[in-house]
Design a protein around this nucleic acid. Structure first.
Lengths: 222, 222
DNA sequence: ACCTGAACACCGTTCAAGT
DNA sequence: ACCTGAACACCGTTCAAGT
């Protein structure tokens, strides 16, 4: 990451707050109260300073969020033992990324703001691309394969997080429930057939089996 | 959709603005200036009314956005000719959903707010689930398969839209470019190998071939 | 029933000035 | 160099009142 406030050699006034203070206080607010409560004003208040002081250490709020994501990843993404089989290695590395994101729902705000998660996740990306190459893909195909896995993973997190947030906030029946209640079985026979099982089915966590399907599909020679 | 302002039978003051006015004005603002510019205040001003008048016709801003998505889908999602082969049918239906979303980047705001796109997209979901069943999946597997396709599709849109927004707004080199510039080839040999091709590779549109891979993977008997 | 005006409780960020 | 105070230009939404 860029370091606009890397420790200068003495001249000028000593800093009262540091990037590290900002990150730590930001992390506390986000984990305890959610990313919606993280505002520059609130952060400044908690840190005992003014909103504008923050702008001396971070460019803007988006940079702050990326910093917090980096901090989160560095703090939690421990490298797991990976299986020798390259296909399994791809699956386990992708599942590890997914697991880290799933424990950190506020991440969605930043996901949509940057395409590569964090330097701390780079090792996992390496494992995925390398595993795909070892399975016989060209490096180019492997990059595209990684991208498909990343889209699937990010999409799962974004959609599931949104669904959970809605459930938490809402009393009213979801749009989905309304739609499935009034489904015309002549026009939508298959959906009508599964209508009453839709909610339990889609709340099942099948991330891993579908991830395997995707990886298997990517590895079919073509 | 719920219709809190369905036409009442005469009593009371005649409405000066209608749900339809709100949707049309909202659509104009969003398509001409982007979803960020759509505020209740701005919409009220354009419609020649006050912010609070809007709250008589929509519950809140989120409902307004869902209404706009519905309107967009009903207006643009024409049912295409579908191939007879069920596997191809799944691919074409999913690609049609993707194409509609890709032409409408502001959708991301609403995607994260509701899990099922719109009643207008229901026919496409039916085709996907039905195609998967015809290929031999159980209805339950087909629903999970649809979900995986939806995650992949939504993830692609979310990430690509975010990347485009960043490119449009930013001069500074992306985080990604910085990371790939300083990549340690000993620690990340595979990424170092593709580092200089990463940007062109990941800007290629491979949605369709990866979608096929996913569908093929979902259809492998297991 | 439908709409208005004023207010509440906020935002991110810029600017000019202070130490 | 680092921080402050005041201000700019906004938000979504509630409330009480008007017609």
């Amino acid at each position: 990451m860029s370091q606009p406030s890397a420790p200068r050699k003495t001249p000028g006034r000593p800093a009262r707050i540091s990037r590290q203070d900002i990150i730590e206080t930001g992390r506390r607010i986000v984990t305890e109260e959610g990313v919606d409560r993280l505002t520059m004003r609130r952060l400044a208040k908690d840190i005992g300073s003014t909103p504008m002081a923050l702008y001396h250490h971070v460019r803007d709020k988006e940079e702050l969020l990326v910093l917090l994501l980096d901090d989160y990843a560095a703090r939690t993404m421990r490298r797991p033992e990976l299986p020798a089989d390259p296909r399994e290695r791809v699956v386990v590395a992708a599942a590890a990324i997914h697991g880290a994101l799933a424990d950190c729902p506020w991440i969605v705000e930043v996901l949509t703001a940057d395409d590569l998660m964090s330097t701390s996740a780079l090792w996992f990306v390496e494992q995925i691309v390398d595993g795909l190459v070892e399975c016989g893909l060209t490096p180019e195909q492997a990059v595209h394969g990684y991208r498909a896995i990343w889209y699937y993973t990010a999409g799962e997190i974004v959609i599931r997080t949104a669904a959970a947030r809605r459930r938490a906030a809402d009393e009213r029946p979801t749009y989905r429930e309304q739609v499935f209640g009034e489904l015309d079985p002549d026009e939508y026979p298959r959906l009508a057939q599964v209508a009453d099982r839709w909610a339990p089915l889609t709340s099942q966590d099948t991330f891993l089996v579908q991830l395997r399907a995707l990886v298997d599909g990517l590895l079919i020679p073509r």
